[in-house]
Amino acid sequence: MPISPNLRARLTLGGYLAVALAALAVLPWIGAEPLDGEQLVAFFRDGQQTPHAQILLQQRLPRILLALLVGGMLSLTGATLQVLFRNPLAEPWTLGVAGGAAVGAFLTQAFPALNLACGPLSSTQALALLGAAVAMGMVWLFARRAGAPTVHTLLLAGVTLSIVCSGAMLLLVYIVSPFEVLSFNRWMMGGLDVLGYRELVSVLVLGMPGVLLLLSLARAYNHLAFSEELALGHGVDVARVKRLTFLGAGVATAACVAVAGPIGFIGMIVPHVVRCLSGFDYRMVLPCAFLLGGSVLAVCDGIARTVIAPTEIPVGVITAVIGGPAFLYLLGKR
């Protein structure tokens, strides 16, 4: 019996939501330190402050929520950039946008004098936004100037930009404080180790408007997937969609990077998986990429927290180790 498209869409979304909720329910229990049931009971029943309750509520839970949010935002942003640049391998990292944002955010770490905060918003975010804007502008100009760049030239430019950004940050670290190279890992590879909910709020406040903006353009991306002229013929205001996509993607990327550093590949692979699993209609692709991207990053972070416990690996290392080969495979397949 055929099911109606509406019901099918709801079931699909429900499925992705279930995966995200499962990640949220299971992952807090996994970690370097096995949680002691008695301590948790003591906290939840008697209100007693116990170390394990602290670990659960102030370390693992906020961290997993942050992973869900950042992974979701990067994946959704990647899905939109893939259409905008007509390149299925585009995403904030491979285009160099995440790298640019990281350089901006990194400035406030290297030069604490630059570090100002106003509620959940901070100069770190502002500089990340500036860095993302500069990088996106460079890639866009490159794409325009080279006429219609092939898949490979655009990615070459983007990945090169990412490397230049990493190099610039390393250079700064060595000049400013050569003994603290390790602590700047996050700005090279990305990491989600946070304490409490401050970072989560700051990502939400800056990033969510960007995400909602991109979601509101979902239908237009289906038209742009053909060509700008076709989209115009169908009544899509292409120039506006492009402007708003730059804005939304830049804001969402900057919000993620300002907290978690440049986490690569998640924004490229997740949209691919979603399109393989549940079709190409961007009204579905975008929300599903958000839900799946969050789950995937939360799982990757779970691996990063546990695989060499009690030490941790930056989560960007895990996504790069898994995502890099997948990227090469997809690049070769085209």
């Binding site: 893939q82 007509r86 053909f226 076709l230 013929g233 399109r275 190409f280």
Partner: peptide, 10 residues
């Protein structure tokens, strides 16, 4: 309006 060739991305 229908343009000449619009090979879709997906």
């Amino acid at each position: 309006f229908l343009p000449q060739e619009s090979p879709p991305l997906f």
